[in-house]
Amino acid sequence: MSAEPVAASPAPRLSLADFATMAITFFSLGVTLQVVLIDNGTSAIRAFVASSVIFSATSQFAYLAVKEAGGGEWAAIIAGIIVATRFGILAVSLTPRLPTGTLRRVAASLNAFDPNVAIAVQQPTPEGVEREFWRTTAGMYVGWFIGIAVGTFLGDVLGDTQRLGLDAVFPAALLAIIGNLLRTRDGRTAGIAGGLLCVVLLPFVPAGLPIILSLGGVAIAILLSNESTSSEEAS
């Protein structure tokens, strides 16, 4: 999910329009996830509970992807946890920028998502960071819970989701979520390398393993980037 419209200005203040953008983004993500979950055979109530407590479309999508490919339960869970490392990294950049006070920091870092951290850390003062963080987070929560409620209902009535192209929605949503990462050179290299590793391994290794082994893409990106830096220094 892109934080672009607000991330473009130097020290953005969250307007009503930004709150709405955040809510609409998480609304569509929530609807999509519920429809896909129910289409994959999860009961409506369980799907709603899962999305309420896990609150991570990426993790849930990754889990489903492995299960769909015939992978084991733990392989799917590990894939779901690895893709959520993103949140840990976002918390790394958010936490030191917050006002002191352990409880306030714990509460905020537990809610680190891509767009709210992207906006909050652009504020100059710790108080500003915290204020903008909670405003954007509020928009996300409102959108998400309305979205998963609507999606739970829709998932029951939609019928053949393949005909509606919903199987393409699932990877498209993930692409939008990591869009900003792919704009950086190293991020792009890691992404391409991870994707290629997955394609090559997929037919030959047990389901779930290609996603875990795609971590090798990180090593490739670092090796390639070190190489280009040293050749620049040499020239």
Binding site: V83, T85, R86, I178, D186, L197, G217, I222
Partner: peptide, 12 residues
């Protein structure tokens, strides 16, 4: 860089 590589593998 982990998310870029792993999420892309899921997408693929």
């Amino acid at each position: 860089l982990i998310p870029a590589a792993v999420v892309m593998a899921v997408i693929v």
